[in-house]
């Protein structure tokens, strides 16, 4: 199964209610897989090819507002188009999953794999002071598993979650073991779980739920932002994920994520065969970033070489 197909299948299996997207290489297999698989017959999930990326992200805003499990996907230029919507989603505290199968940039760039959207992803991407939960798979297996993980975090914290894949992981085929089909929530279950904030229909015993990112009262907006920052702090404390390969006795440690981490694993293997004590630290969540862990290496290790697929971005972030 291709990485892109695995993400689509995982979305169906974790009981997603809707997918809204627009095709772009190297991500098109996500939408193609949904269309071939017809999940509306399997689980009742809605799949819609929107007229543009901007339309798709705003459909996500609508779907997420009602407490439904919705996702969209695109590749770099398309993800740039979605940034306004992402900012609104973050401001309105709406849970959703966005997949970015990264290709070369800037601009239209090319269609080869790249990691150059790193900064955009971990800094939020749009205007305003917000974060996305960013998780980076490095295999087809993780591509599938992280769709579920991303939805879990998105709903736990009411935050948009971004899966940062790339053209290599999206296009390659590997063995993948899929988790069992989970039921979609019924409308009653959605009301029970998310009725406190989602627009599920006002009942007599509560105030209206209003989904908005607009607040013209300065003090209230400030409080809202403080609350967002407190939430981000909590995520930083609790949700960091990383993998260490041969780090214990390593003199030098490479830090790399996604496809680069796979290639660096080969480097570690070749170096070890020659007696060079090299290790690999692979951040899995890019925000929150395992910076504490990496800072610890500074005391014991001789150095941290970093692959240059990300050029300036990744290195400068934590060096």
């Amino acid at each position: 199964m291709k990485g892109n197909e695995a993400m689509a299948e995982a979305a169906i299996r974790c009981g997603a209610d809707g997918y809204f997207g627009y095709p772009i290489t190297p991500q098109s297999e996500v939408l193609e897989y949904f269309m071939a698989e017809e999940p509306w017959n399997r689980t009742g999930m809605v799949v819609l090819q929107a007229e543009s990326e901007i339309a798709a992200i705003n459909m996500i805003y609508g779907g997420a507002s009602t407490g439904k499990k919705v996702l969209t996907s695109s590749s770099s230029p398309g993800i740039s188009l979605k940034q306004e919507g992402l900012s609104y989603l973050a401001g309105a505290e709406l849970p959703c999953v966005v997949i970015n199968v990264v290709r070369g940039g800037p601009g239209l760039g090319d269609i080869q794999p790249a990691q150059s959207d790193y900064f955009q992803s971990v800094k939020g991407g749009g205007h305003g002071d917000y974060k996305l939960f960013v998780i980076a798979p490095s295999s087809v297996q993780e591509s599938a598993d992280f769709v579920k993980k991303a939805f879990d975090i998105a709903f736990k914290y009411r935050i948009p979650a971004l899966i940062l894949s790339d053209g290599a992981i999206g296009q390659m085929m590997e063995k993948v073991e899929l988790f069992e089909q989970e039921e979609r929530l019924t409308d009653e279950q959605v009301i029970e779980k998310y009725g406190s904030w989602a627009t599920t229909g006002k009942t007599a015993d509560r105030e209206r739920n209003i989904i908005t990112s607009l607040d013209l009262i300065p003090e209230r907006l400030e409080d809202h932002n403080k609350q967002l920052q407190a939430k981000y702090k909590k995520i930083e404390e609790n949700e960091i994920m990383f993998e260490e390969i041969h780090c214990d006795d390593a003199d030098h440690i490479i830090v790399a994520y996604g496809t680069s981490a796979r290639i660096c694993q080969k480097t570690v293997q070749l170096a070890r065969e020659k007696g060079i004590k090299l290790g690999l630290m692979r951040p899995i969540t890019l925000w929150p970033f395992p910076k504490k862990k990496i800072a610890e290496y500074g005391d014991t290790k001789k150095g941290i070489p970093t692959p240059d697929e990300v050029l300036t971005a990744f290195e400068k972030h934590f060096m």
Binding site: T25, M172, M173
Partner: peptide, 16 residues
């Protein structure tokens, strides 16, 4: 390869 329980990867040159 999968049929005999091995690990496999298939990485195409795609696009143009």
């Amino acid at each position: 390869g999968i049929m005999q329980d091995q690990e496999v990867s298939w990485m195409p040159a795609y696009g143009p």
